[in-house]
Design a protein around this nucleic acid. Structure first.
Lengths: 122, 122
DNA sequence: CGGTATCCAAAGGGATACTG
DNA sequence: CAGTATCCCTTTGGATACCG
């Protein structure tokens, strides 16, 4: 990225900014501690059950897994599908909106990787 | 984005994942409440002074502005330039790394805008 | 199996006053 | 002008136990 590209991006951001900043809005949705990990493991293996997902993530507690799942569902990033049987059988699935969001993190992934390497060199 | 593109991205993420997740790493750096706003107003008008920046942002306190600036500097996203005069004159400037990061938020900006609109329709 | 409920600890952030 | 220092409140997240 050169200065000219950067200036163009600034101009674009500036001209297209609604009342509330979309970046802050997005970060609020995915900013709490377990949102990315939950979506991540669902991305790697869609349709996991609650306890399956819990084992995938490893260190998450029930409280936080439930809370994260509920909020992600409310924001339309995943769908909860219950069979309504006894014992219960519930699976979680990313929605298209959720997949879009994960896809969107590509650049942040790259930036992080690059920046992490740089820090190690120093 | 279609399913095939999504699958490719997953594969890429998976194959290029270092020990620590670069997304979580990035989000830790810019995740606290005022990081984006600070970088944002610096982006719109680089080289602002401390109090200038404070007025630009509006509702930030001294405590948080100082803390955010120090952390962003430590992470190499901005540079603090002091003239060493009395009274002091200090300006803040985005580094190339910082500009890269802002540039990187473009997709998240789009996603947020799209998602916000969708919510309003319901 | 798929969660709730309750309680507690820690982190994050704000208000206010002050300073070289 | 460019911050510090101190105190306090709120939000977030963890531990543990229990339930239909």
């Amino acid at each position: 990225m050169n200065q000219n590209e950067f200036d163009k991006k600034i101009k674009y951001f500036h001209e297209n900014m609604p009342k509330q900043c979309p970046i802050l809005y997005s970060m609020k949705i995915i900013g709490s501690k377990w949102k990315i990990p939950v979506m991540w493991y669902l991305m790697l293996n869609d349709g996991q059950h609650y306890n399956e997902l819990k084992r995938s993530i490893g260190s998450i507690t029930n409280t936080m897994l439930t809370k994260s799942l509920r909020e992600l569902e409310e924001d339309g990033l995943l769908k909860r599908i219950s069979k309504g049987t006894v014992p219960p059988s519930v699976t979680y699935h990313l929605t298209d909106t959720g997949k879009d969001l994960i896809y969107t993190m590509g650049d942040l992934f790259e930036w992080g990787k690059k920046h992490m390497k740089k820090e190690q060199r120093n």
